[in-house]
Computed example of a mutant assay.
Amino acid sequence: MRYIMTIVWAVLISAAVSYVLTSMGGEPFVLSEALILSAVFVVAAFILGDGVLKEKSN
């Protein structure tokens, strides 16, 4: 379930970031670019969550 929610939040956040940045630049919003950005966010979240920031058990 946490993987599904990570993907959902990554898509929502990357779409918002992409929309704001393209609006500021005067460019048209392209959904495919937002989805590529969300894939980057998902991979980064999975690597950080499962690898780098994992709690050490004693």
Rank of each mutant, 00 (worst) to 15 (best):
I7W: 02
M5E: 12
M1C: 02
V20R: 08
E55C: 01
M24V: 14
G51R: 11
S18I: 01
K54N: 05
S38R: 00
T6Q: 04
T22K: 06
E27S: 08
L35I: 13
I36W: 07
G25Q: 15
L53P: 00
W9T: 09
Y3E: 10
F41Q: 02
I47P: 01
S57A: 08
S38A: 15
G49Y: 09
G51L: 09
E33G: 06
L21M: 14
R2Q: 08
V42K: 00
G26K: 07
I4F: 14
I7K: 06
M1E: 05
A15Y: 05
V42A: 10
M1F: 11
L35K: 01
V30S: 04
G51D: 03
V17Q: 07
S57P: 08
I36D: 04
M1T: 02
V52L: 15
M24L: 15
A16P: 01
T6N: 08
K56T: 13
F46R: 01
L12P: 04
L48P: 01
I36M: 07
S14I: 01
L53T: 09
R2I: 10
V40D: 04
S14G: 04
V30D: 15
F29K: 05
V8F: 06
V11P: 00
I13W: 12
F29M: 07
L37S: 14
G51Y: 10
Y3L: 14
M1W: 07
A44W: 02
M1V: 03
S57H: 11
L37K: 05
L31W: 09
V17K: 04
A39P: 00
T22S: 13
P28E: 08
I4K: 09
L21S: 10
A39G: 14
A39T: 06
A15S: 15
I13A: 11
S57K: 10
L48Y: 15
M1I: 03
S18F: 07
A10R: 01
Y19Q: 06
S38Q: 02
R2V: 08
A39R: 02
Y19C: 07
L37V: 05
L35E: 06
M24R: 12
I4C: 08
